[in-house]
Simulated assay, not measured.
Amino acid sequence: MKIEDDYKYYDKALTIAGSDSGGGAGIQADLKTFHEFKCYGASVVTAVTSQNTLGVYDIHEIPKKIIISQLDCVLGDIGFDAIKIGMLFSKDIIDIVTDKLLSYSCKNIVLDPVIFSKNNFKLIEDGALDKLKINLFPISDILTPNLPEAEIILGKKINSLNEMKYAAIELLSMGPKSVIIKGGHFHDSSVSPDCLAMRENSKVKILWLESNKIETKNSHGTGCTFSSAITAHLAKGFSVEESFRFAKKYISNSLLKGSLYKIGNGMGPVCHFQD
């Protein structure tokens, strides 16, 4: 019989998000990504969505007591090296998640502020975004909005790389330790620029990463996959900057490989397989 010190230990990552019945985004994409980086993945489901490559058709919010029970079960027993937060549909769910993350002293929290699906189906109720900013921004290690999400949060358009940089700094002032704005939505650019703003002592450090823009309709799950790749690398002990670099490379490869496949009749998913 093995004694305790003989056992190996997993790098463990948790996703708190909605379920995508089509398998391209949400918890399904998160768990696939964790697996690719050899992280033990667990999940807390906050909502069940009915969706496929053509769009989102319905949302069922999980009862609050079940969300509380899921969080207590996994956080109280397993514990995690990093946590990714995705779709939180309501103010009540945001309150619950905030309370549990603080109660269990969770670390390496990556917040992907999911507001709309790829086909513009709203994934957060009215008024909940303000609650998200007040509750979860200050306890997040990395905030990962895409360009439209950053515009909604800040209430203004972002039309240039310079404006994108200052938007990241403004989001940083709302409490998170670091912010990554994903610039793939710049329509007049041949590259996809992402901007990291992070606190470094009393200053703000800015890091830009660019990749060639890939022309593909298979981009479903891009944001979930990117933030989950960051989470997986944080769980494995990498720094924020290192995790950003790994995730940028992974999502670029996922888009490129996904462009070769056809699934369904609409916007297909990125390819999570790297080999």
Rank of each mutant, 00 (worst) to 15 (best):
I27N: 01
A235K: 06
I251E: 09
I158T: 02
F246T: 01
A197H: 05
N108K: 12
L147W: 12
S43G: 13
K156L: 00
K165E: 15
P176T: 05
A229Q: 06
G127H: 10
N146Q: 05
D20I: 03
G155M: 08
H272Y: 00
K182Q: 00
E242H: 06
P176F: 14
C271M: 08
K249C: 07
S254I: 11
H233W: 15
I115M: 13
I181W: 06
H272C: 07
R245Q: 14
L260T: 11
C224H: 12
F80H: 11
E170T: 12
V74G: 00
T144I: 11
G183R: 04
S252V: 09
K217S: 14
N212M: 07
G237Q: 12
N162L: 01
L154T: 14
K203M: 10
C271V: 03
F37Q: 12
E170L: 07
L154K: 11
C106Q: 15
G23Q: 10
Y250P: 12
K249A: 05
P176D: 04
F116D: 11
S228V: 13
V240Q: 08
V270R: 04
F186M: 05
Y9N: 09
E242K: 14
L172K: 02
L31C: 03
T46C: 00
G258A: 14
I124D: 07
D20T: 03
N135I: 08
S227R: 03
H35F: 03
G55A: 13
I139W: 06
F121V: 02
